[in-house]
Nucleic acid binder design. Structure first.
Length: 958
RNA sequence: GCCGGGUUGGUGGAAUGGCAUACACGGAUGUCUCAAACACAUCUGCCCGAAAGGGCUUGCGGGUUCGAGUCCCGCACCCGGCACCA
């Protein structure tokens, strides 16, 4: 160890009381034990089992959170705790500035890796998960994180997932009232149906005349959690279905990178689309990185446009378009292959003279459609994506009528139109949409220019290379007897045609969202079971609260059945379904004992993280997910924050549209139903960067152990062989992981904390460099030496007054460090502390107590152990944790003299020491009379003098 | 293709439109030491110069300004997100 770190080693003849790794380790362990025993980090609630000191409760509060970790078996590397250290520093700073601070950490412990590990080893996922959690807790404890451990829990605790299930049932038992723009209990909808206040959709019969199954069907169309048969993302390689958010752009599973297929399966969904507008609108009030807000906005994908009806015989096809101004240029239509109208409109035979290219060589429209549908269904999303440029499709044999000009337009099916977006049908305007253009070229369809090109390409689309899709142009050839768009810009043309469509009753302006409902069931063992049972008619029933938690059964085989990743014809099989004793039960749900069959899917691992911030507030409450008063205290709306929420939430940017969108959705449902006062879970979000590491690869491309690579003359060698170097992620598989345990052993946790915070701005990724850690160790060693004599161990501070220079250095540091910590700029805060500390070292002699104490207090959030130790050695009997952070004296924050720069034509030619409150006139006079200035000017004509007292004079010569 | 973010010494990085390179790593020299380590001190952007001194420098090219790393326009490259979304 001492080979890489001579500074920290306790060599035999070193000073006996030097701050060494051994001493740091001893100090850290001692104070960690003390803090645990003392409950130093316990944050009092206003009531309940965690109630505490009313004086502390009365302070302003701060709820500071990390995205909780998944307890991986690999343990932590130094990249993992970056965010935890940052929130801890911030939480400690807030504690020292008069706040009641809630800071803790739990575990997101359901999920696939534990299940896969269980399949490989036969160990129950709970056993391996709990072992991993113990291991991680020990690693984290070593870092001195000031967590209120009374509030920690894991999502796999039955006491916790009881409430996850309870919330699911609240969502199941509610519907979205579009007029009121909020969720309401489903019972209120039933009452409206029963009283006739609201018509029962899809039937002329009264509510009372419907069978139980029919009622269940109707309600299923309203519930915010509902089961439906719809095309879902089926991943044979994982043996489970996935949410859209879990499928990558190239049609593969985010986990495991397996192909994903569309399959029609009965699955649970969350009606997150009901909240699309609120999820979008409420982003404005959040203090989140703009990049993340933008990602959510794009994911929700609001588009303004119109719906337009195109008659086909007795039917009508409704399309959604954002370019209703180009209606006169629609020369054909396309339906998604799965569109329900396809069967209805397909005629028995091809119309006379149908183009061969359109029929795909099939004898009848029905054959062509069936063949194309089969071909489309067999395609994985990967293939569909890859072939996006080559447009495929087939004519249905049907013609529709363009309602603006009465023209007959052929109706195609093609997989470039998606059933899940808009109405699953489009009007095709090949002249002004590049996809339609490509399709029209392939199928020799007519094109008509209805927006005048402004780029000199002419008005004949046949001569174009691509569609003209610009918005900076005006309509042409767009008039009928009743309406004309000619000469209007795109925006005006849209408005006029929409108005006309509405007047004629053939269309209307509308808003469409890209967001789809959230697929909520998975075919896995290691997740929350659904608190749902089916009766003998297959109707879903909610379990009563008294039957929660519904615990996972013990099973022989945890594995979801997985398949050949490319086999699209497979279907999922849930692990829970193999357990007949658990699945088939007799229960009394209030109408006497009956036989039921349990739901055998489990919830996705996002479920547990959708609401965990609430449980930290009141973790032991067994009558509610959180007490309303406690929730209001920590999360409720407050001045400037109408939505309430966590004060600071730190985590990786990879959750931009998964966890963060789901959690916002649950939060809004719970808010609507009156269970919480905050409509947003996280007011301020901050994304920490990644700690990267160099990956060294040998000639074959295999990673070699980074720790054993030597550098010589700008090249790298492993066992004598030259190897290549690239910046990558840190991890075991790349053989470049550095663990916090190693760094703690070599330098102590305080050094690790400082180094991670000093590396750069928190939100930027940066490479780990073990060699550079020693710099922060030296800082602590000098800090120690400024207070304690290394030979005797005695405290060396004096009670004498500090000199003027030192006071200015101190108060400038206080001022700067305070602002930097508040702004999460830990790297520059550390630089300022270093400067002050170096100033004291350079000054030599004993440090005045009046300087040493504030220095130790300022170091406390960053390096809590050494600060606590020095604080006690300075004679205090209370913990540094609850001391007030130093406040700068404004008299010493300004310098006594300021260096004024004199520039001639923008170049620095002289420096003057002047008073900070010198006037512009005096400064100008001083500058112009300075010898260096006059000689530099050398008689040149002074045209203009810019004076910015006291810092700068700029002389402009002719 | 569309949308974001970025590019500053050998390295990580710092700079409310006003001294570019704070702080740290690495490197050089010195003090201490029998020697080394540690510690402490001095130096360390590049070029010319023996020195004094001078010139250049924030990815590239323009612009605004007395003054631009910072603001505006164009370009290159890197990273991230979305992507047949009508």
């Amino acid at each position: 160890m001492s080979e890489t770190n001579p500074a920290a080693a306790a060599t035999p003849d070193a000073a006996p009381h030097r701050y060494t790794a051994a001493l740091a380790t001893e100090i850290e362990a001692r104070w960690q034990d003390f803090w645990d025993a003392d409950g130093t980090y316990a944050a009092p609630n206003p009531k309940g089992d965690l109630a505490g000191d009313p004086e502390v409760v009365a302070r302003p509060k701060k709820f500071i959170m990390d995205m909780f970790p998944y307890p991986s078996g690999a343990g932590l590397h130094v990249g993992h705790p970056l965010g935890y250290i940052a929130t801890d520093v911030y939480a400690r700073f807030q504690r020292m500035t008069g706040h009641n601070v809630l800071h803790t950490l739990g575990f997101d412990a359901f999920g696939l890796p534990a299940e896969q590990y269980a399949v490989q080893t036969g160990t129950h996922p709970r056993v391996s998960t709990e072992a991993n959690m113990e291991n991680m807790k020990a690693q984290l404890r070593r870092l001195g994180l000031g967590h209120d451990k009374r509030r920690s829990f894991a999502t796999i605790d039955p006491d916790y997932y009881k409430w996850t299930q309870w919330i699911f049932l609240r969502i199941f038992d509610s519907w979205y009232d579009q007029e009121a723009r909020r969720a309401r209990p489903i019972a209120e909808l039933v009452a409206q149906f029963a009283s006739g206040e609201r018509a029962v959709p899809g039937t002329d019969r009264a509510w009372s005349e419907l069978t139980a199954a029919e009622r269940a069907d109707v309600l299923g169309g309203f519930r915010l959690a509902y089961a439906s048969d719809a095309p879902v993302n089926w991943c044979p390689g994982l043996g489970t279905v996935l949410a859209n958010e879990e499928v990558t752009a190239d049609g593969r599973s985010e986990r495991g990178n397996f192909p994903v297929f569309k399959a029609k399966l009965r699955q649970w969904n969350m009606r997150i689309t009901a909240y699309a507008d609120r999820l979008l609108d409420d982003l404005d009030g959040l203090d989140w990185p703009e990049a993340i807000k933008l990602q959510q906005r794009n994911w929700i994908g609001r588009s303004e446009g119109a719906r337009v009806d195109f008659p086909v015989g007795d039917e009508r096809i409704t399309v959604f378009t954002t370019r209703q101004d180009t209606l006169f240029g629609a020369t054909y239509m396309v339906l998604a292959p799965e569109h329900p109208l396809v069967e209805t409109i397909t005629p028995a035979a091809w119309p006379e003279g149908t183009h061969d290219v359109w029929t795909g060589g099939h004898a009848s429209p029905a054959d062509a459609v069936a063949a194309y549908r089969a071909q489309a269904a067999a395609k994985s999303d990967v293939e569909r994506q890859a072939e996006a440029k080559d447009k495929t499709g087939v004519f249905t044999g049907a013609y529709a009528v363009n309602p603006v000009n009465g023209e007959r337009v052929p109706v195609f099916i093609a997989d470039y139109v998606l059933m899940g977006y808009g109405t699953g049908a489009i009007m095709a305007v090949p002249a002004h949409d590049s996809r339609d253009f490509a399709f029209a070229r392939a199928f020799e369809l007519p094109m008509r220019c209805v927006v005048g090109p402004t780029d000199g390409r002419g008005t004949d689309p046949a001569a174009w290379d691509d569609a003209f899709a610009s918005y900076e142009a005006t309509s042409v050839n767009s008039a009928n007897d009743k309406v004309s768009l000619d000469g209007l810009g795109v925006t005006d043309a849209k408005a006029r045609i929409t108005e006309w469509l509405e007047r004629e009753g053939i269309g209307e302006g509308t808003v469409n969202f890209r967001l789809r409902d959230w697929l909520f069931s998975r075919q896995r063992y290691w997740g929350e079971p659904f608190p749902i049972v089916y009766d003998e008619d297959g109707i879903a029933h909610a379990l009563p609260e008294s039957m929660l938690p519904l615990e996972l059964p013990e099973v022989e085989d945890y594995s979801p059945r997985t398949f050949e990743p490319d086999d699209a014809d497979t279907r999922p099989e849930t692990p829970l379904s193999r357990n007949a004793d658990w699945v088939n039960v007799t229960l009394d749900l209030g109408d006497g004992p009956k036989k039921y069959r349990r739901e055998t899917n489990t919830m996705p691992n996002w479920a547990g993280s959708c609401w965990y911030e609430l449980r930290y507030l009141d973790p032991h409450n067994d009558t509610a997910l959180v007490d309303p008063e406690i929730e209001r205290y920590w999360m409720g709306p407050r001045e400037g924050l109408p939505h309430g929420g966590v004060d600071l939430y730190v985590g990786g940017a990879e959750h931009a549209v998964l966890h963060l969108l789901y959690a916002r959705f649950w939060s809004k449902v719970l808010f609507d139903l009156g269970h919480v006062s905050s409509a947003e879970p996280f007011h301020k979000l901050y994304n920490q960067g990644m700690i990267q590491a160099y990956v060294y690869r040998d000639a074959r491309g295999f990673p070699v152990p980074a720790a054993e690579v030597e550098e010589r003359d700008g090249a790298w060698y492993y066992e004598g062989e030259q190897v290549g170097r690239l910046l990558g992620k840190m991890g075991k598989s790349l053989k470049n992981a550095v663990t916090p345990d190693e760094i703690c052993a070599e330098y102590g946790a305080d050094t690790l904390r400082l180094y991670e915070m000093a590396m750069g701005p928190l939100d930027v990724s940066r490479p780990w460099d073990t060699r550079a850690v020693v710099g922060q160790f030296r800082l602590l060693q000098r800090l120690w030496r400024n207070v304690v004599d290394e030979e005797s161990g005695e405290v060396t501070v004096t009670d004498g007054a500090a000199d003027e220079d030192t006071l200015r250095a101190l108060h400038k540091a206080i001022d700067g460090v305070r602002q930097d910590l508040e702004g999460l700029r830990f790297n520059t805060a550390i630089a300022k502390l270093t400067e002050l500390n170096n100033h004291l070292t350079k000054a030599g002699g004993a440090v005045p107590r009046a300087v040493a104490e504030p220095l130790v207090l300022m170091a406390a959030p960053l390096a809590p152990h050494v600060a606590e130790e020095l604080w006690r050695r300075l004679g205090h009997t209370d913990s540094v944790v609850h001391r007030d952070f130093p406040v700068a004296d404004p008299r010493y924050v300004v310098d006594e003299t300021v260096t004024c720069v004199v520039q001639i034509k923008g170049k620095v030619r002289a420096r003057l020491e002047v008073s900070p409150d010198i006037t512009d006139a005096d400064l100008e006079k001083a500058a112009l009379s300075d010898e260096r200035v006059t000689s530099a000017l050398d008689g040149a004509v002074v045209r203009k003098v810019i004076v910015r007292a006291p810092k700068l004079v700029n002389i402009v010569t002719g």
